[in-house]
């Protein structure tokens, strides 16, 4: 590890990022304000994905199921049982924890390409389940959570999460908590073990580590983080539909992380933000925007194989976590 000096720098950097995002709430024009709130929630998915892929080196192609677990865990309980927001959010987290524990126990018997395929297949099963239970989920049409279910009561007073500034602050709160948690984890003893597993699992075992247990913890932490984003998405944006469980939402976090920089704490946010705007801007000019996005990705992988922040860390700012 490095000295206390860079510890302070690292902490200040993360606080500064959170501070800037806070200030932007008051500055940004309405459209970009809305975009940023959404991107903050989506980048929480990317941060969860990064824990597993970036740090532990496990490439999953099924993380949509964890996002969906949170989305449906919160959405269904709020919609059908009228659960209040904190309870619905907690239901989302618990769904994510249970699902990721089960998936981890099964999928971690495999590695490499087999792990990719197994996670993808489980995610596909989850996707199909959202249609199988369409009596409850209404499948592709989905459920729309009304304004009255998206109020957070504190005594008699309540926060209305359909209000843009409140929604923005709620997204920022989730983003900040998850960012600081990931920062803490990657700098902890467990984080160092995850990196060691990524670099050489056999060697890590010979240092006395139960690598299976460490990977299982990583899967659950990653799954719960993604579920928290799903639960927040349902409650903040009020829509719960099958498309969020589709393979697209398994691939996107991978792209965001690759773009922003795998195994960097801020890379997932940078990647999600960058990609959102690339799609947004190109799609306003041409219907072939996916082609442009594809080309942009190829160029990035060619010239910045470690992603934006990964490259910056390699060339300039070595202390970046």
């Amino acid at each position: 590890m490095r000295g206390g000096n860079s510890s302070a720098k690292v902490f200040l950097l993360h606080i500064a990022v959170i501070g800037i995002l806070f200030a932007l709430n008051f500055i940004l024009p309405e459209y970009h304000h809305g975009v940023l709130a959404r991107v903050m929630v989506l980048s929480v998915v990317a941060m969860g994905y990064n824990m597993l892929f970036g740090y532990a080196g496990l490439l999953s192609l099924g993380h949509a199921m964890f996002f969906a677990a949170g989305l449906y865990g919160a959405g269904l309980t709020a919609y059908h049982f009228g659960w209040a927001m904190p309870a619905a959010f907690a239901a989302g987290l618990v769904s994510g924890a249970v699902l990721s524990l089960a998936i981890g126990l099964l999928a971690l018997r495999t590695t490499g390409v087999a792990f990719m395929i197994v996670t993808m297949m489980f995610a596909q099963v989850c996707y199909l389940l959202t249609f199988y239970f369409s009596e409850w989920t209404r499948g592709d049409d989905g459920l729309v959570l009304g304004q009255e279910t998206r109020r957070l009561f504190i005594g008699d007073f309540y926060l209305d999460l359909t209000h843009p500034a409140t929604r923005y602050m709620a997204a920022l709160a989730l983003f900040s908590v998850v960012l600081l948690i990931t920062l803490f984890i990657v700098r902890s003893a467990h984080g160092r073990v995850l990196v060691a597993i990524r670099e050489n699992e056999e060697r890590t075992k010979m240092l006395g580590y139960d690598t299976f247990a460490n990977k299982l913890v990583a899967v659950v932490v990653s799954g719960v983080i993604c579920a928290s984003a799903g639960a927040a998405y349902a409650l903040l944006f009020g829509y719960v539909g099958s498309s969020f469980a589709s393979v697209q939402y398994s691939i996107l976090p991978l792209l965001w992380v690759l773009l922003g920089g795998a195994a960097t704490t801020l890379g997932p946010f940078v990647g999600a933000l960058f990609m959102y705007y690339v799609v947004d801007i190109t799609s306003s000019y041409t219907s072939a925007y996916l082609l442009i996005v594809g080309v942009a990705l190829i160029l990035l992988v060619l010239y910045f194989p470690k992603g934006i922040l990964g490259t910056i860390r390699e060339r300039w700012i070595r202390w970046l976590p």
Binding site: A196, K205, M206, L207, Y209
Partner: peptide, 30 residues
């Protein structure tokens, strides 16, 4: 193997297999 290591058996590899991308410090910290 990992349980044997915990009982006190340590093995240093014939074919060097340190964690090449980690600092010497982190290799020992692990």
């Amino acid at each position: 193997a990992y349980r044997r290591v915990r009982q006190g058996i340590a093995y240093t590899f014939q074919i060097t297999s340190v964690f090449a991308h980690l600092s010497a410090y982190d290799n020992v910290a692990l």
